[in-house]
Design a protein around this nucleic acid. Structure first.
Lengths: 138, 138
DNA sequence: ATTAATGCAAACATTTTGCAGTCTC
DNA sequence: GAGACTGCAAAATGTTTGCATTAAT
């Protein structure tokens, strides 16, 4: 396992954001620091990050995968996403964790990880019928 | 909106299973009933089913989408998937529903839908270190 | 008869991979 | 210096689409 300059740059970028990002966006951010970094290297580095648990692969119902860098600090957090503007809010709930554990055991399983996504309308949508700034994250 | 024989066959197939399926599997099942049905028609029919709410598009952390035909009967169910054999078990929990509602409102959102996926090890895995029959679903 | 829906094949978007060259250890 | 890692371009995968033809209304 070699600590190449490309890997260092990519890891640096990942740890300097709390936003959820896509592979494409990670490539762009990384290229901004070191323009020689290739798409292939980003795609080869991402599994290293997800397998180590530093980053989680997320599905928000889009065609591309999102990556969440906040699992190291908050290993059991959940997500609310506005179905209109894609705004994402994270939250934690000990109560939900407890129920998940109970049910998983009762059904004969051993819990490894959980993923709760709530699709909702945000405050701005409720007030104005649509959200001011659409997220441009891609 | 025309009721073509292809659509009838596809809908028929969807309603005769409680299993989660992929687009590819739906094509195979449909072709078994009418070999002329094309991949394109399956892919053009799926959005009709998901938009009507009869079927939900699901992500189980695989590279392809799954479709769940059980939402008509159980609109708020959750999923446990064995990380080894991909066995899927569904369950419902009024407690979780209630907490989800409370938190969503407290954060200023209005809940539209929810999606809880628990990744776990099944009993067979716990006993034998691996699961007997890997699911061949693709 | 109109025109929505189909099958085919080509196009697409995202991700993966083979290979020759490069850089870490 | 060995071989893990890289960039490039080609391939693979899952899904979508243009177009000429078919078939539901």
């Amino acid at each position: 396992m070699r600590l190449t300059s490309q890997r260092m740059t990519i890891i640096d970028v990942v740890f300097s954001t709390e936003e959820h990002f896509t592979a494409d966006q990670l490539l762009e951010w990384s290229k901004a620091k070191d323009s020689s970094i290739s798409r292939a290297t980003v795609y080869r580095t991402l599994p290293l990050l997800t397998e180590s648990g530093l980053v989680h692969e997320m599905d928000f119902g889009k065609d591309y995968k999102y990556y969440d860098p906040n699992y190291a600090e908050h290993p059991n957090h959940h997500h609310i996403i506005c179905e209109d503007c894609d705004r994402i809010v994270e939250f934690e709930s000990k109560k939900i964790e407890k129920i998940e554990d109970e049910i998983t055991q009762k059904l004969g399983f051993e819990l490894r990880s959980q993923n709760l996504r709530i699709t909702a309308n945000c405050e701005s949508f409720k007030k104005h019928g649509s959200c001011k700034q659409k997220s441009s994250l891609k």
